Every structure is written in structure tokens, then in C-alpha cells.
Simulated scan of single mutants.
Amino acid sequence: MSPATPVSTAYASSTQQLQSVLTATGIEKAYRRGVWPARRSLTVLRGADLSLAHGEVVGLVGENGSGKSTLMKILVGALRPDAGTVSYDGRLGYCPQEPIVYERLTCDEHFELFGRAYGMAPEAERRARRAIYESLSFERHAATRSDQLSGGTLSKLNLGLALLADPEVLLLDEPYAGFDFDTYLKFWDLVGQRRQAGRSVLIISHFVTDEERFDRIVQLRDGKTQPRDGKAVA
């Protein structure tokens, strides 16, 4: 997992979207499979649109293979679309579905490394780290190497690194996989705090059980986004 910063001028912050903190329009993506002459193209996204307003919590759902993670990677700049535009206002925090960490580093060392990458002052990083440990209850693992963490604690570290710099937009790909119920509730407490602070959260999941926790739920189907009522996304 790389620190969540703007990755290129194509993804520069936009002040034109006064109501939206993140806007994606007409996103298309196809993958090439095989070798010539049997090479074929698999189209995943066919003009997907998505926007997040300040202080909004949005769920993005879809079947396995529908392109949810592909769209998320495009939003954070880890993958280039074949067509379409992405603009955002502020810093992005990204929590990938599969944690990408350094096996020989402890939790503390990960936070220190990412804090430097974010350009955080050392004391600000330490304050944020302590708050994350307390919120997700894994301070006792501060000196534990990541290759010795349980799956649930590794998921906490993965989420904590995305939260560290208090990003305006938090993009989470299946963030609570491996959480026990107590941690799941703590996760939603954190999301609620971010909503109250005017921060935006996009959560990808293959299914949603607690719909009342979201402001909107968007479905990805046939390469396009639509609200759960089936109408096209404006």
C-alpha cells in the first residue's frame, strides 16, 4: 500500500466541483488477455460515474468480478483508465483489499514510515498513531512485526495507515474483512466521526448488511454505476 497522495497532474485537485470532494466521470477500462493471435480484450468498466460529497458515506457494491476494485484503483491513481476523468479536492486515504505491508517492520515502524511519506511532523504522527491504536484496540501489537500479526490485526494496521493523515476522502476496499464484531462496531464509530468532521468515505463491498449506515449505495453492474433503485447515476 502506497501513501495516498496525488499521483499525477491528470488527477490534480479540482476547485470546480464545489459540492463534490471526488468526481469520476465516464470511466472505461479493459484488460488484454492471452497472446497474439488469440489475444482478447475483457471490458470491465463501460463509462462508470461516481461522486462523493463532503461528509458523505457511500457504499459501492457489485458481484465478484464486476470491476469494483478496478474502479477503486483508478480513483486513487494506482491504475490508469482507458477513458474518463477523475478529480478530487484534498488528500486521499486508500485501504486496499489485500494489505501491502513490509514483513520485517513493526506496526510502529509502519506508522513512522507512512507519516514521513505523508509529510507529517513527528509529533503529529505520534498523536494520530496513538488515537488509531486506541480506536481499534491494537496498541499491544505496536512492537510486533507485520509478518507475526493475525489476519484481523493486519486489517487494523491496513486501515490505520489509511487513516493516519486524516484524509479528506477515505477509500476502503472490503475494509472489515477479518474483523470481529467488536472491531466492526469500532470501525463504524470511526466512520461516523469522519462524517461529522465533514470527511467523505467510500466503502467497497460485495454485499451490504447495514444499509442504514450509508448515505447512499451505488451498484456496479455491466461496467456502469447505478443507485440501488436501478436508475442511471447522474
Results as ranks from 00 to 15, higher is better:
residue 182 D to E: 12
residue 154 L to C: 08
residue 123 E to D: 15
residue 125 E to I: 13
residue 140 R to M: 10
residue 183 T to R: 02
residue 133 Y to E: 02
residue 113 L to C: 10
residue 105 L to C: 07
residue 109 E to M: 04
residue 117 A to P: 00
residue 124 A to L: 12
residue 83 A to L: 01
residue 123 E to V: 15
residue 153 T to P: 01
residue 181 F to P: 00
residue 182 D to H: 08
residue 113 L to Q: 09
residue 87 S to M: 06
residue 84 G to M: 08
residue 89 D to G: 03
residue 143 A to F: 09
residue 129 R to W: 05
residue 172 L to P: 04
residue 179 F to E: 03
residue 136 L to I: 08
residue 105 L to S: 04
residue 126 R to I: 07
residue 117 A to G: 09
residue 110 H to I: 08
residue 109 E to C: 07
residue 146 S to I: 08
residue 86 V to R: 09
residue 134 E to P: 02
residue 156 K to R: 12
residue 85 T to Y: 00
residue 173 D to K: 03
residue 148 Q to P: 00
residue 144 T to I: 14
residue 125 E to C: 15
residue 93 G to V: 07
residue 96 P to M: 05
residue 163 L to R: 03
residue 142 A to W: 05
residue 154 L to V: 06
residue 174 E to L: 07
residue 112 E to F: 12
residue 168 E to Q: 15
residue 88 Y to M: 14
residue 131 A to S: 13
residue 135 S to Y: 00
residue 180 D to F: 04
residue 153 T to Y: 04
residue 152 G to L: 07
residue 123 E to W: 11
residue 82 D to T: 09
residue 86 V to Y: 04
residue 121 A to P: 10
residue 181 F to S: 09
residue 124 A to W: 05
residue 148 Q to R: 15
residue 110 H to E: 02
residue 149 L to G: 07
residue 114 F to D: 02
residue 149 L to E: 02
residue 123 E to Y: 11
residue 111 F to Y: 13
residue 91 R to C: 04
residue 80 R to Q: 14
residue 134 E to K: 14
residue 125 E to W: 06
residue 152 G to W: 08
residue 91 R to H: 01
residue 128 A to F: 06
residue 105 L to Q: 02
residue 88 Y to L: 15
residue 98 E to M: 08
residue 111 F to L: 13
residue 158 N to H: 06
residue 157 L to G: 01
residue 122 P to D: 09
residue 170 L to D: 00
residue 129 R to P: 00
residue 87 S to V: 15
residue 84 G to L: 09
residue 128 A to G: 07
residue 94 Y to C: 02
residue 122 P to M: 10
residue 132 I to D: 02
residue 93 G to R: 11
residue 127 R to H: 14
residue 164 L to S: 02
residue 168 E to L: 05
residue 184 Y to P: 00
residue 98 E to Y: 06
residue 164 L to K: 06
residue 117 A to K: 13
residue 98 E to A: 11
residue 90 G to N: 05
residue 179 F to Y: 12
residue 156 K to F: 03
residue 94 Y to K: 08
residue 96 P to I: 04
residue 118 Y to P: 03
residue 97 Q to L: 01
residue 142 A to H: 08
residue 98 E to P: 00
residue 86 V to T: 08
residue 149 L to C: 04
residue 161 L to T: 03
residue 169 V to I: 15
residue 119 G to N: 10
residue 80 R to A: 15
residue 138 F to Q: 06
residue 112 E to S: 14
residue 137 S to I: 12
residue 160 G to N: 01
residue 174 E to M: 04
residue 144 T to F: 08
residue 117 A to N: 08
residue 106 T to I: 10
residue 150 S to T: 11
residue 94 Y to W: 15
residue 130 R to M: 13
residue 180 D to H: 03
residue 107 C to E: 05
residue 165 A to I: 05
residue 135 S to E: 12
residue 125 E to P: 00
residue 126 R to H: 11
residue 83 A to P: 01
residue 173 D to N: 05
residue 81 P to K: 03
residue 82 D to K: 09
residue 110 H to M: 07
residue 155 S to M: 09
residue 150 S to R: 10
residue 89 D to M: 03
residue 104 R to S: 14
residue 141 H to L: 11
